[in-house]
Every structure is written in structure tokens, then in C-alpha cells.
Design a protein around this nucleic acid. Sequence first.
DNA 1: GTCTATAAGCGGATAGAC
DNA 2: GTCTATCCGCTTATAGAC
Lengths: 211, 211
Amino acid sequence: MATTPKTRGPRGPYAKTRATKQKILDAALLVFAESGFRSGSLREVAERVGLSDAGLLHHYPTKAALLIATLQHRDDVATRDFHVDTADGRSLIQNMIDITERNMNQPGVVELYCTLSAEATTPDHPAHGYFIERYDWVRDLVTGAFKQLQAEGGLRDGIEPRSTAIHLVSLMDGLQVQWLLNRDSVDMTVEVKRYLDTLVIEPFRAPDRLA
Amino acid sequence: MATTPKTRGPRGPYAKTRATKQKILDAALLVFAESGFRSGSLREVAERVGLSDAGLLHHYPTKAALLIATLQHRDDVATRDFHVDTADGRSLIQNMIDITERNMNQPGVVELYCTLSAEATTPDHPAHGYFIERYDWVRDLVTGAFKQLQAEGGLRDGIEPRSTAIHLVSLMDGLQVQWLLNRDSVDMTVEVKRYLDTLVIEPFRAPDRLA
DNA sequence: GTCTATAAGCGGATAGAC
DNA sequence: GTCTATCCGCTTATAGAC
């Protein structure tokens, strides 16, 4: 009874499982980022953690389950680090610059989303639904921010919130591919900022590195 | 001597090889588009053509060779269909709309480039160099077009040709991911056109479907 | 030009011991 | 919680027959 293998928290019982799962997710991120889901192997993940295949599969019963856990874990970390005030349009858009800046310091995460989102365009991919929902959510979020900015008179004439949201999201995604291919080819932060400055009346600040 | 298995042309000798190679490339496009290079299998390509594995490898000695041939073939077709006047900036930009329009009618090709460009961000991928060169080329081409448009007074104030070229290319790539995930989520042609209209003084036409 | 046969390896997943 | 052993399928590529 008391030996039920449930994870309770970092300080609670079964802390070892917690720590192992953490290590597994970190390794899985690297592997799926580098090789995608289909070509990335459980074996390589297990190797990095110092586990056997079967040992890994004890924690995540299938490869697909591991992928989903990895994506959810990334989302948890991201929403913990970046608590965005979705009610303030201007600060939400400002946040897109900050996110880009942060992304340039964690190429692994960028690679993960870049590789997987492309791979997941086929309907039978285990993360297909995840990315559809994710994009729906982001587009709506950013659309709302632009609408608010527009209501405050912060947008130039003729800027359409919905389309502009789609453009901003697409722009950020497209920049990532070019940046991953060759880090010197584009500066993502500079380009996102420049794009936003063509939309907005009061220009956006670059992220303050000394704050 | 006379039996050297060289391909000479559609009407010349060895026309059978020509036709087979054509069929192979068509099948390879679909397979690599759907599953990428790493997960796409020679076996599936061979199956679609109605060939054995070994039969396929007679025409393309390795999997990587098949990939490169597939990409080159696509480029040949594209440059044949779209003979762009690189000297005329405005028509080159106009052409980006036409290309988008055409892409919406051949999702397989879009999928190919989307999937492979993401996969090829790792340096050891056989198409890594291909995509680096391709993006360098496209960025330069589009930058030149915007510069010329600017010199003619066709661009709004504060538009920087190089950055704008990067933005347009990124935008088109990013749109493709969202469109492949869900065809109803975005209309690529509409969005490209809207974006261009925010840059330019004389608005661009939508592609003329009756021309 | 295409085949069969075969090599040699990696893939995910399961059963059961400890 | 982790292991070993094992199954079975799929992979690219080669050798040699037809």
C-alpha cells in the first residue's frame, strides 16, 4: 500500500522518481530537438540519463507519452518564468521581444519547437493536436493584444489585428529556421523589434539586459 | 561500350531510365514530404514506384543522393514554371504572391520544404548546405527587389530593404506551418498580400486567376 | 534494368528477475 | 525502480543472378 509508486513532490516521498523523471525530460528535450520524434530514439534518451531502455519505459510507458510529457514540461517552465499580464496588450507584445531574446539563449528549445511543429503537420503525429491547439491559442492571444493596442490608438492606420497577429507569429517561426541553420544569418531580436516598430506609433524598447 | 547506362534525354536512348527516374523522384517527393529524410524510407519510395529496394538503388546509389536529386528536381521544375525577371523589383515581389498562390495548390511541395528545412537545421543533415545556400540566395534576391522598389519611390518611409526581405521570407515560411497544420486556420495568399500592402505605396494585385 | 538473397544494425516494446 | 533477455519488425546497402 505505502509502496504505491506515485510521485508526490520534490520533498515528499518518492523524491527519487521525481528527480529521475526530471533528468529524463531534460534528455528527451535534447534528443527530440535534435532528431525530432520519429528519428529520435528512446535508446539515446535512456543512454543520456544512464538508464536502460526498460528503465526509462518504467517512467513513461511509450515513446509518445514521453514526447507529450516533454512538451508539457516545457510549457510549465515557460509559463512559470514568464508570467504575462494578458490583460495589458502593450506589455504582451513587449513580451514577444523578451521571449525572442530568451530563445536566442536556449537554441535547444527553439530547435525542439521548430523540428516538432514541422514534423507534426502530418495528422497522425502524436503532437499534431498539441500544435493545432497551441497555434489557435497564440493567435487569439496576440490578436487580443493588438486589438487593445489599437483601441488605445497605439497602432498605425490600416493595421488589422487578426492578420497582424498571424504575421507576427509566422515571422517569429520563420526567423527561427533561418537562425538555426546559421546563427549569423539573422538576429531574431533585432528583426522582431524592427517589425513591431513598423506597426506601432510609440516604438518598442529592446529588452533591458541590465534590469 | 555502347551499352553504357547513361541517360540521354526523353526521346533519346535509355528513355526507360528517364521515365523511371521521373517516377522515383515523384514518389520520393511525397515520402520525404510526409516523413522527412530520416524517417522516410527507401522501401516506401520503391513500393510506390513498383520497384524493389535494390532496383531503386540502381538509379540512386544512396538515400542521401536520392534526397539531393529530389530537391534539385523541384528547383528545376520551379525555375522552369516561373521565369522571374530578377531585374524588375516590383514584378519579383509580385511573384512572391503568385508563388504563394501556387503553393496552396500543391501542399506536397510545401510539406517537403517545411519538413526538410526544419530537419536540416542540424549540421550533419545531408541537405544542411542546400538550405543554407538557398536562404542566402533568396534573402539576397528579395533584398535587391526591395532596394529597387525603394529607389523608385515605391516603398513607405522607414522600410529597410534587407530586414524587410528577411521578414517576408520568414513570414511565408511561418505561414506554411500553420497552414499545413490546419488549412482553415490561415489563407496564405491573403496574408502575404496584406503584409506587402503595409510596405508598399501602390497596392499589389492578387494573382489574376483568369489570366 | 531489375530481381532475390543476405548482411548487419537499430527501433520500440514486453516479461520477468532482482 | 531498474535490470537482463528477448521478440520482432524495419532500416540501408551489397553481391550476384537473370
